[in-house]
Nucleic acid binder design. Sequence first.
DNA 1: TATACTATATCTTATATAAGAATATAAGAC
DNA 2: GTCTTATATTCTTATATAAGATATAGTATA
Lengths: 249, 249
Amino acid sequence: MPPGRATDTVSDRLEATPLYRKVGELLATRIDEGFWQAGEMLPNEFVLADQFNVSQGTVRKALGTLESRGIVERRQGRGTFVTTNTDERSFYHFFRLAEPGGERVKPDPHSEKIKRRKATKHEQQQLGTADNTEVFEIVRVRVVGEHRASRETMLIPCDIAPTLQSLKSKLPNSLYPYYQQQFGTMVLRAEEYIAAVTASKIVAAALQIEPGTPVLEVTRTAHDIKDRVVELRVSQFRSDLFNYNVTLR
Amino acid sequence: MPPGRATDTVSDRLEATPLYRKVGELLATRIDEGFWQAGEMLPNEFVLADQFNVSQGTVRKALGTLESRGIVERRQGRGTFVTTNTDERSFYHFFRLAEPGGERVKPDPHSEKIKRRKATKHEQQQLGTADNTEVFEIVRVRVVGEHRASRETMLIPCDIAPTLQSLKSKLPNSLYPYYQQQFGTMVLRAEEYIAAVTASKIVAAALQIEPGTPVLEVTRTAHDIKDRVVELRVSQFRSDLFNYNVTLR
DNA sequence: TATACTATATCTTATATAAGAATATAAGAC
DNA sequence: GTCTTATATTCTTATATAAGATATAGTATA
């Protein structure tokens, strides 16, 4: 079929979107809705091309956009797979702690508390949810070797992670893989605001440092495929032993 | 010409690189060497295809990689242009200051000092240069409205920016566009390490805050097309009024 | 018979090319 | 000046072929 159909009219001229983008959107929506789950293999390019009634190259280009957004991973000769937020991946993308001027570090969980409460007005606004939203609040301390590294306070709407509190065992090391496995929520983007503050008594106790010591305070909103906010997080990082590392391009 | 030639041997099998990547590398090298300058338009896809003896589609894919690396910008119907590091672009990519939880801010220069000196051993190592490297050291303070926002200390090897000190007028608002215009050096990537520290007397004076106040200290290496280090920079940011913002994906 | 190796078939994504459409700009007609 | 046309550019789509990965069947060997 030639790209420009003979039936072009003004009305569909207005909504002229390239085929590959339409296909890409449809695929993204399917994945968001759990049609294909984490780690699952998508049908091959030719099958998808058949389903959408386009050529393999067009499906290919659509899949390329999903790949660059981190939604799928592709391997020549193997197939196209829904990205699994493994611990590794999750840490690599969303946990930026590093040796000063050097390699990134991977901390271990040390302790955690979880409770259910109502979100404040401000939190509701940040989450983009209605009034009276209930959230889980998780406070977790992490260690690197012998040292306390961070104290994180996470806020997750209950309707996103309904069974979170009934979890009997400890929370998994990384939450985003858990969100994905349990609730089909795929964290793809995080927006962070970093400040230097003095450690409060609570933070100092958690990080085993003197109150008043400067620490990094990182405020984050985490977003899914459709850019919905799925988590609020405020973390304090010990900054004398570790740095926050990021690459700008 | 079909992709796999009948003359394939073991030796050229080993160096099997897709055409579009070879073409991309050649184009990147040309731009790095100043064959096409900032803002200049490249020949169109068909002309380049002719020059490299490949099809338009292959050139197109190569240009796509350069575009995603930020080396060129393309506009349908207009052409492909070497990216100009405008002030806007430079600030947007490489200056991450923002209102807490909100919009990015664009500060103005307030004062600056420049001198020439020998790099220390450690600096040489970070720059990846030989012994006895001479550098320019620039110290600059920036303001947002009435408030001091940052104090930056930049280190640039003299051979990268030979005429920097002879500059009569004030330094331009943003340095990277200047590097590109004057020396053909295109900063594409910056690696940053962020720490929370207490303001020293010098920093406190520059930022007009009390000594001991926590400030953000950002240590940066800036890299060009070929990933050479072209600048070292240590910046202190006032953190009570501003935050460091970054998007992770 | 069981096991290890090897070729082969088949499934997958990747690469290269070609043709036409969409977009921007300049030149020409009125 | 304003509209139309021409021209130059990138963008979209389709097609054919290559290349990578994996399972399977066959074969030799112990």
